[in-house]
Design a binder for these strands. Structure first.
Lengths: 186, 186
DNA sequence: TACTTGATGTCATCGAGTGACATCGGAGGT
DNA sequence: ACCTCCGATGTCACTCGATGACATCAAGTA
C-alpha cells in the first residue's frame, strides 16, 4: 500500500460529479472537490487540466473506438455507411450506462461552461472522422460534410436516447435517426 | 462630448481582436486590452461578460436575422427549404466582410477556448432554429434534426468560403453545400 | 544501505471575474 | 443659472482558477 489511497483521479471524478449535481458547477470550488476526494487542490490540477475536464475523462476512449470502427469499415462502404458503423460502435460503449449518462447529461446541460466543453469534444470527433474518411479515399469536401453530419446525428440520437423510454436501445435510436435524416434530405 | 471617449465597447473589440492576433489569446491579459482601449479592466467586464465574448458581439444579430428569415419563409416551405432561406439570410450579413471574417476565424481557430465559445453560439442557433421550426408546425424530432443539420451545413459552407477563392459568393457556397448534402444522403 | 522514482503536499504568484462604493459630466427640470 | 439625478467609468478589495518551484516520503531496486 502506498503513502496515499489509490485512484485519486477516480475519487476526484466521483466527487466532482456529485458536487456539481448537488451545488451546481459554479457553486463548487476545486478545493471542495479535492477535499471530498481527500487530496489538495494542486493534485486536482495534476490529474485534470481544468475544472471542466473532470467530467470528460472517457472521451478519448470514445473517440478512439469510433475512429477504429470507421477505419475498419468495409473498403467499399459508402461514407455514410462507414459513419453508421462508427455510430453503432459508440452505442456499444454506452449501452449499459444509460443511468450514468443521464445524470452526467443533466449536469452538463445545466452549465454553459460544461456545454462548451462538450461541444469541443464533438468538434474533435468531427475532425477525427474527417481525417479517417479522407484516409479511406473520400474526397475532402465530402469527408468533412459527412463527418459533420454524422456527429449531428450522434448528438440528436444520444439526446433522444437519454430523454426517451428507459428500455430503448441506443443502436436502434441511432439507426432510426439516420433513417429520419435521409427522409429529411430526400 | 462626454467625460470619456465614446464607444468604449467598440474600442475594446478592436483592441482585443488586434492583441489576440498579435500575441495570441493566452498571451493577452484583459488589462492589456483595456489599456489599449484607454479604459480599466473593470470596464472591460462591464461591456463583456468574459474575455472570450468580446469576439462574439455580433452573434445575437446574426441569430435574430436567421430566425426571422426562417419564420418568414413561405408557409408551405419544407423544413430544409426554410433552413435554406435562413442560411441565405446569413450570407447577406457576411457578404462584404470576408476579410474581417477571415482574420476573426484565424484567431478563433488558433484558440481552443475561443472555439468552445463559437460552438456554443452555434448550439444556440440550433436551439433557435428548432424552436422556430416547431412554431411552423414541424414535428419536434424532425425540427431538431433539421436544425442540427442546417447548422452543420452553415459551418461547412462558412469554412469553405473563408478558405476558398477570394471572389466566391457565400450564398453560392451555401447552396452548393446543401446540394452536396442531399447527394450524400441520397 | 543508498539511490531513484512517482505521486502528493506546500508555498507563492498571476490573471479572470465580481461586488461595493466613489466620481463627475451631462440631461432635464425649476 | 442652479440643482438634482443618472449613467458610464474609476478604484479598491477580494475570491477562485490555474501554474511553477521545491519539499516530502513510501516503495522499488541495486
Amino acid at each position: 500500500m502506498g503513502r496515499w489511497e489509490p485512484d485519486a483521479a477516480g475519487r476526484l471524478r466521483e466527487a466532482a460529479m456529485a458536487l456539481y449535481a448537488e451545488q451546481g458547477f459554479d457553486g463548487t470550488t476545486v478545493a471542495d472537490i479535492a477535499d471530498r476526494a481527500g487530496v489538495t487542490a494542486r493534485t486536482f490540477f495534476r490529474h485534470f487540466v481544468d475544472k471542466r475536464e473532470v467530467l470528460f475523462a472517457g472521451s478519448e476512449e470514445l473517440q478512439r473506438r469510433m475512429v477504429d470502427a470507421l477505419t475498419g469499415a468495409p473498403r467499399d462502404a459508402e461514407p455514410m455507411d462507414a459513419i453508421t458503423i462508427a455510430l453503432l460502435a459508440a452505442a456499444e460503449l454506452f449501452a449499459d450506462r444509460r443511468d450514468h449518462s443521464r445524470r452526467r447529461q443533466a449536469v452538463i446541460a445545466a452549465t454553459p461552461e460544461l456545454r462548451e466543453r462538450e461541444f469541443i469534444k464533438m468538434a474533435s470527433l468531427v475532425t477525427a472522422f474527417t481525417e479517417a474518411l479522407r484516409q479511406r479515399g473520400v474526397e475532402p469536401d465530402t469527408a468533412s460534410l459527412a463527418a459533420e453530419t454524422g456527429i449531428a446525428v450522434f448528438r440528436v440520437a444520444f439526446e433522444r436516447w437519454v430523454t426517451g423510454p428507459e428500455d430503448a436501445d441506443l443502436a436502434d435510436v441511432m439507426r432510426g435517426t439516420l433513417a429520419d435524416l435521409s427522409e429529411l434530405t430526400a
